[in-house]
Design a protein around this nucleic acid. Structure first.
Length: 926
RNA sequence: GCGAGUGUGACUGAGAGGCCAAAAGUGACCGACUCAAGAUCGGUUCUCGCAGGAGUUCGCAGGUUCGAAUCCUGCCACUCGCACCA
């Protein structure tokens, strides 16, 4: 028997389910789960499939447990990517076209429409919905929306009004990576090189030179007091430029950079670096110092001029020493400025001498600089004459002082270079103005989020640390963009709200999304949302009843119970949405839990559309069937683990479903007699029900499947083996079939829907009652008895494997009573090291002599190797070996293939009989 | 580099101090059925053993313990995140 035609089966189910999963508030308890909605810019692959199928299994499970389950879906179309895609397609970019035409299988006609970015998201959101349906996802599609729907925009405007009123939005300047050629900020993925470069904030210290300023760039403004000279690269080219009205001397590169960072710059003339050597410059805080030449000065770094603090900066120290060793500048002495434990007056000197550095070209200089820098920053203190502050404090305050009193400016620069844009041009730091920020750095906002995280269920628990760390680490988030799709900032419509910032509380929107569609956007004023989501007084509105209805529905569903998402979103989306929730909703509506997913691999390699290493979900469903895809995806790894899609494993999953189908089908014609082995099957089943339930309650889909499928399957195998032809029994599978179909329904709903009908189940299995273990059907003694028989057959097998004779008979020798006493003594002994002495101390055992001593020793290892339950059951007198073996003698003879005799070990004189132990009879094959 | 996590037999992956040579699944091999193949069913799958046993394994190296895949320390490898990007 093979599976019914999958196309027909899937069609039937999809018809039956069409409107089945459209929950409304009811008297039942609710269960609301949401998944991060997709950005439909490409086709779904099996990795996406798991992201939505795992929650569906959970949804179906809770639905069967009687909850009103809400599993909604929408599409996130905000942002710039589709704009880039459509541009690339419009301009005939071969790579983009190949991706869409060949990999995503977009028909040529549709592809032509992709010059409109909205056409892309329209096409793929249709495709997503179609494929999600085909996968059997129990989604309430009435609530579907996209993030550019006008009603949704109204909702976002309302959200942002609140954020702003709550003081969570500020405006400011913001340094970004910027490509002057593209005239655009560049993100990580736009970089050819330098993606690890970070933006550092330098302080420019304005030294006076003749009528001009020489701005020396430093990350350590507090060391101004220890400056002995400046460094200039004599081979670099410098310019005199009017910066914000004052003449500055900086490297040529620096002049260009400054113009991107809020300065007006006009270059007046060139000055070779060498012309600055030996010039005198001065500053209020360090007096007059000379400019000296140094090759390590990089004209491409900041201003191309640096100040020299030889006492504390290894580069400065060694450069000075190099000059002095040639007999120059011997009057310059380092200034001791900072005390650090483990170093003398001049940490830079100590570090260099310890390392035995020869000159400034030594490759270890970077590391030594880092060492001194960290030591001074973390443990250093300024000397008393400079105020005695810690370096950490001084850096802040001296920097601020220099800016306030001495005309210092800030300048941004990358810590590593070069940074190259995809267009090939060099990337600079530019200061963007009028940028809006979400103030995630706000300590009181952070505190609220941390408090919320503490109350939440996080799955798996290991991610808690990462959430906590993310909250601590988040800085202000630039939340507006100039280009892309999305909602305009209500009070500053030149800006669009950026995608990670307009997708934080839409879980609330779902609760009433289907009703909101009935409203004109302009009807959805902020006070309407205030009423629905925050319980503010109901505004005067022509459709007050409807508003009241929505308020009721929101209150029923919210807060959501679980949010599901892949682990890469912890450090942004998942944490952001908590920030927004605590900012907007009352405590009763704050999220309860999150489940974080692992990533997907395809044949061991990372799945990646750009590398073409993807398997499309729709192809998978067509090839293997939706049930198979589902069962594989939830069964191959737990949700938070990475999973690996391998066709051969998927193929075998399909066979397992077939076996399941056949077993259930065959159960319909099973005999109706019920033998002890049937009671055993049903007894075991109760535990599988319990374990499956427990696993699903904590999202362990793989574990659940191990119990619900493989463990039951293994029991059935034993059950089949135990049935001796010609004897009554076998009816257990009938009862099992009813339970099994329901246990499997969340995972493979299509086939279970069909089977449920065929075995006479009421209604849809999707809404059938989840099985509940019946304690009355559990018979532990029966289970112990079967365990003993199983052990006996295993022993028998291993003996047969090593002997070479063909046996004619099997004798089973049961251990005598005195061995049972020893066994009990060993099992009950608290101190395992003394048990031999204790037992042999007893007269009745001692007179058995060596036999007893051997038995004790054997029992010690034996007891340890037995499952505790079996030992306990045996000691409680719940299994009589003789009775068990006698009643199964037909089975034992079938297994052994020879006549079986059961006897007491001390009733026969065969030497092997002596080896009999409790729960391990001696077997004699001869 | 920083932060979080993971390393188990051919592979996927359970196990979290004595039930452990280590579940389950896959693959491979051997049988049964079949003219045959496939499917299905049964068995084997670290090494040695003509009696149910013994030996060596759980990233590497040490340590704690009567006893370690499991606990501790160090190292190595891999995965994810490190922001204006979904």
């Amino acid at each position: 028997m093979s599976l019914p035609d999958p196309r027909q089966l899937e069609r039937d189910c999809l018809t039956a389910w069409e409107h089945a999963f459209e929950p409304n508030p009811s008297a039942r308890e609710k269960f609301y789960l949401t998944v991060a909605y997709p950005y439909p810019s490409g086709a779904m692959h099996v990795g996406h499939g798991r992201t939505y199928i795992v929650p569906d299994v959970i949804a179906r499970f809770w639905r069967m447990r009687g909850r009103e389950v809400l599993y909604p879906m929408a599409f996130h179309v905000t942002g710039a990517p589709v704009i880039g895609i459509s541009k690339r397609i419009a301009r005939g970019d071969e790579k983009a076209i190949r991706l869409y035409r060949d990999l995503y299988k977009v028909p040529q006609k549709t592809l032509e429409q992709f010059v409109d970015p909205l056409a892309i998201v329209r096409h793929f959101s249709e495709e997503y919905q179609r494929v999600m349906r085909a996968c059997g996802l129990s989604i309430d599609w009435r609530r579907r929306f996209t993030t550019v729907d006008p009603q949704y925009s109204k909702f976002i405007e309302w959200q942002w009004k609140h954020l702003r009123e709550g003081g969570h939005v500020t405006k400011g300047a913001h340094p970004v990576r910027y490509c002057p050629q593209c005239e655009n900020p560049v993100g990580d993925h736009d970089l050819l090189e330098g993606d690890r470069a970070e933006i550092q904030k330098f302080v420019l210290i304005m030294f006076r030179w003749k009528d001009a300023f020489i701005p020396a760039a430093t990350l350590r403004p507090e060391t101004i007091y220890g400056v002995t000279n400046l460094w200039v690269n004599p081979r670099a080219s410098y310019v005199r430029a009017i910066v914000d009205g004052a003449p500055w001397i900086v490297s040529r590169e620096a002049a260009e950079k400054l113009s991107l960072q809020d300065h007006t710059v006009s270059i007046e003339g060139e000055i070779p670096g060498s012309a600055l050597v030996n010039e005198k410059v001065s500053h209020r805080l360090c007096g007059e110092v000379p400019v000296l030449p140094a090759s390590f000065v990089d004209p491409g770094m900041a201003t191309g001029m640096v100040m020299s603090v030889p006492g504390h900066a290894p580069f400065d120290y060694i450069a000075l020493r190099d000059l002095q060793s040639q007999g120059h500048y011997s009057h310059i002495q380092p200034v001791s400025l900072i005390r650090v434990p483990g170093y003398g007056d001049f940490p830079a000197k100590d570090a260099i001498e310890r390392a035995g550095v020869k000159d400034q070209t030594d490759p270890r200089m970077e590391a030594i600089t880092q060492e001194v820098y960290s030591a001074e920053f973390s443990q250093g203190k300024l000397r008393e004459e400079f105020g005695g502050m810690t370096v950490r404090e001084a850096r802040e305050s001296v920097g601020a002082l220099l800016v306030a009193r001495d005309g210092s400016k800030y300048m941004y620069e990358f810590d590593t270079r070069p940074v190259i844009c995809r267009c090939g041009g060099q990337v600079f730091v530019k200061i963007l103005h009028d940028q809006w920020f979400l103030t995630y750095s706000d300590p009181s906002w952070k505190a609220e989020v941390s408090a919320q995280i503490e109350k939440m269920v996080l799955v798996p628990p290991e991610v808690r640390a990462e959430f906590e760390r993310t909250v601590g680490w988040l800085k202000d988030w630039a939340c507006t963009r100039r280009v892309g799709l999305g909602t305009r900032l209500p009070w500053d419509p030149g800006w669009l709200i950026e995608p990670l910032s307009d997708s934080t509380i839409y879980m609330a929107y779902y609760t009433v999304a289907h009703h909101l569609k009935e409203f004109l956007p302009e009807e959805l004023t902020p006070d309407v949302f205030d009423y629905i989501f925050c319980g503010q007084p109901c505004p005067d509105h022509p459709r007050k009843d409807m508003l009241a209805q929505m308020r009721k529905e929101f209150c029923y569903w919210y807060p959501y119970d679980y949010r599901f998402s892949a682990k890469d979103l912890i450090s942004n989306h998942l944490t952001f949405q908590l920030f927004h929730h605590v900012a907007i909703f009352p405590p009763s509506c704050l999220p309860r839990g999150m489940v974080v997913f692992g990533m997907g691999l395809l044949n061991g390699a990372k799945m990646s559309s750009s590398k073409g290493n993807v398997f499309l979900l729709e192809d998978a469903v067509m090839e293997f069937g939706a049930d198979t895809v589902r069962m594989f995806l939830v069964g191959s790894a737990e949700p938070w683990q990475d999973f690996d899609w391998r066709n051969e494993l998927v193929q075998s999953t399909r066979k397992q479903i077939e076996r399941f189908y056949n077993t259930i089908q065959e159960s319909r014609t099973a005999p109706s007699e019920v033998a002890p082995i049937d009671r055993w099957l049903i007894s075991r089943l109760q535990q599988h029900i319990q374990k499956t339930t427990q696993a699903l309650e904590v999202f362990q889909t793989r574990q659940a499947l191990q119990e619900a499928f493989y463990a039951i399957d293994a029991d059935l195998k034993w059950h089949r083996r135990r049935i001796v032809p010609g004897t009554p029994g076998g009816g257990g599978v009938r009862e099992l079939a009813h339970v099994w179909t329901r246990l499997m329904a969340p995972v493979i709903p299509f086939i279970c829907e069909r089977l449920w009908k065929e075995i006479g189940g009421e209604g849809l299995v999707s809404f059938a009652d989840w099985p509940v273990p019946d304690q009355g059907k559990i018979d532990l003694n029966l289970e112990l008895a079967e365990e003993m028989l199983l052990r006996l057959t295993e022993d028998l097998e291993s003996i047969r494997k090593v002997i070479q004779i063909t046996p004619r008979s099997l004798t089973i020798c049961i251990a005598p009573a005195w061995k049972r006493e020893i066994f009990a003594a060993v099992a009950g002994a608290a101190d395992k090291t003394r048990v031999v002495k204790d037992i042999m101390g007893e007269e009745r055992f001692r007179k058995k002599g060596k036999d007893a001593a051997d038995a004790v020793r054997q029992c010690i290892t034996h007891v340890h190797r037995l499952p505790p339950g079996l030992v306990e059951g045996y000691l409680a007198g719940n299994c009589d070996e003789r009775e068990i073996f006698f009643s199964a003698i037909g089975f034992l003879e079938k297994e052994a293939g020879v006549p079986v005799t059961i006897t007491d070990a001390d009733a026969i004189s065969h030497p092997r009989a002596k080896g009999a132990l409790p729960l391990k009879p001696a077997l004699i094959l001869e």
